[in-house]
Design a protein around this nucleic acid. Sequence first.
DNA 1: GATGAATGAGGTTTCATTCAT
DNA 2: CATGAATGAAACCTCATTCAT
Lengths: 185, 185, 185, 185
Amino acid sequence: MKAEIKQKSILLFEEKGFSETSIQDIVEALGVTKGTFYYYFSSKEQLLMDIHLGYIDDLLNRQEKIQQKQISNREKLTQLIALLITDIAKHGPSGKVFFREMRHLGEENAFQVKGKREKFRKNLEKIIMDGIVQKEFRQGLDPDIIAFAILGVANWSYQWFNPSGGITADRLADIYIDLILNGIV
Amino acid sequence: MKAEIKQKSILLFEEKGFSETSIQDIVEALGVTKGTFYYYFSSKEQLLMDIHLGYIDDLLNRQEKIQQKQISNREKLTQLIALLITDIAKHGPSGKVFFREMRHLGEENAFQVKGKREKFRKNLEKIIMDGIVQKEFRQGLDPDIIAFAILGVANWSYQWFNPSGGITADRLADIYIDLILNGIV
Amino acid sequence: MKAEIKQKSILLFEEKGFSETSIQDIVEALGVTKGTFYYYFSSKEQLLMDIHLGYIDDLLNRQEKIQQKQISNREKLTQLIALLITDIAKHGPSGKVFFREMRHLGEENAFQVKGKREKFRKNLEKIIMDGIVQKEFRQGLDPDIIAFAILGVANWSYQWFNPSGGITADRLADIYIDLILNGIV
Amino acid sequence: MKAEIKQKSILLFEEKGFSETSIQDIVEALGVTKGTFYYYFSSKEQLLMDIHLGYIDDLLNRQEKIQQKQISNREKLTQLIALLITDIAKHGPSGKVFFREMRHLGEENAFQVKGKREKFRKNLEKIIMDGIVQKEFRQGLDPDIIAFAILGVANWSYQWFNPSGGITADRLADIYIDLILNGIV
DNA sequence: GATGAATGAGGTTTCATTCAT
DNA sequence: CATGAATGAAACCTCATTCAT
């Protein structure tokens, strides 16, 4: 039941937004009552936190696995971007909620999630830095800003990319990787 | 007064979000009453629409000016990215509200704004396409996806870039342009 | 201007009701501003009172004229009913407002209008009473209840009678008079 | 609780009118909170609709029972008028609300109620028509207008008749029936 | 005579949350 | 485990009215 509530909530939050989705909406969509909701979640915020943690923890997990592989930094970067993009197809709604609704977490929860987001960014930054040191990437790059740029490209996809549209997630990832590695000139 | 309300609203919407900012919050911050608000705006949504139009219309205007210049496509692209980034310093809050709160527009208003956003994107796409045709950019690129990527990089900046921090908007624009043109390899 | 406001208000009150019509609605329909309204009327209630008095005073006036004529009571009754019915065509909206919106008058005003309404009813009652005494009408009738019945028949017409429909006001008055005088058996 | 709210609302609506009675007034009179009101009724209009349907459905029901009886049309008419008048004593407030506040129903609801009102009127019309055909009533009458007249007499009673006053409902019904059948001459 | 900016009280409605059962 | 009645704070919005110009 708890999982069901969470899953349905993600879909509703994605569709209408967190503030615009009431507990009533959620329980009605499931055919249960409000009491049931509060049996499993102590508050609406806690549900949102649950969704956030589920998403970011999974992402960090998979990022770590890539990082531990014995492959070049270029390859690590490639796999990481592919990870982010292909996730849209699999966990699209979760991701959208994640990127859009963090503002609705209370101070403490926001702090915790922010920490994990930054950890993800820092890990990405490290790959770039390592790549520069090992001469896989150009010298003189700002690893932190490049990391932000890469995240921008990938995360923005959540706003427009439709996996069931004209282009597959894999193909999109390839294009992005090519762009980031080689530029457009 | 109308301008004052709009300006203060932008700041509050940026800080707390549209849904989380009440009319009460806005008028209290200005020392007026709710009646005054509704004298100038017929609804909260209409205020949001006002903000959206002010932002996107200005942006389209300036994009057009760049597009009409007699300069290379590469230079046009450079200026466009600079435009987007340096805007953060000048109209940061407006931009954040613009990118985050479109969901709160009603169907009709959302349609209108979406149209203008797409126009902006299509214009960017055209620069890339022209650049490819004129061999300024690599052959075989997908202009639409490249456009999305550039918008991702630029728009994401609204989420983290602090113009009064360690790096200037001009410098950031330069870095981004270099990245997009040349890649990281 | 004052007359214009009053006239337009009657139409709007008839269409949407007193409470549902705002001062804004009235002035907008006339292309003037709220200040203008309050220059001519000290309050919304006073406007309603104006409308009420205009209607009932006129009615009482004409009732008196009939009463003073040297004709039979039966003829007086006939003319009175004709007066009420044909009024719908001429002052329909005023009448509708009059019958529906008295509740929105304050205590004092309501008292005054009620007094005049009762005077009208009492006058009608007197005709019936006189008719009974003079053997024009059946003996044993309750003049007060008959008066209420006649008012019911006539006033209810305001709810459904459309003078531009299939039947004229004169014809309707004739039918009603026949009914009241002779019954249906 | 739902029934309690409905009943108290009827009394308040009768006393002060629909627009002039706020949800606050209703819940305060019951010692509950606004939340409770909206737990049982989705809107103020829906409550009004509930009241309307409760009244008209009951009325139609009883009308039908009369209509199916094996009695003369004259007797049917008599019973119908008695039904309307004696109702004032039993459901007076409901009736007053019913006759006065239909304007506050939205388009759809008003349409539905109007349909039922017309059905009641048409049924009454049919009794008159049948009575004419079977020579119980005079030839040459307009059944529709006679129906309107009867409704006027009966419904107007809601505006003045006080069952606890000097005359009983039964007596009033008798007087009305006599008037309608025989006239005043 | 007329304007229009401003008020403030009050209206309907929503909603996260609680709690006895 | 789950229900459903009840809460109460706060949201958006309306509107008659005032008043300096």
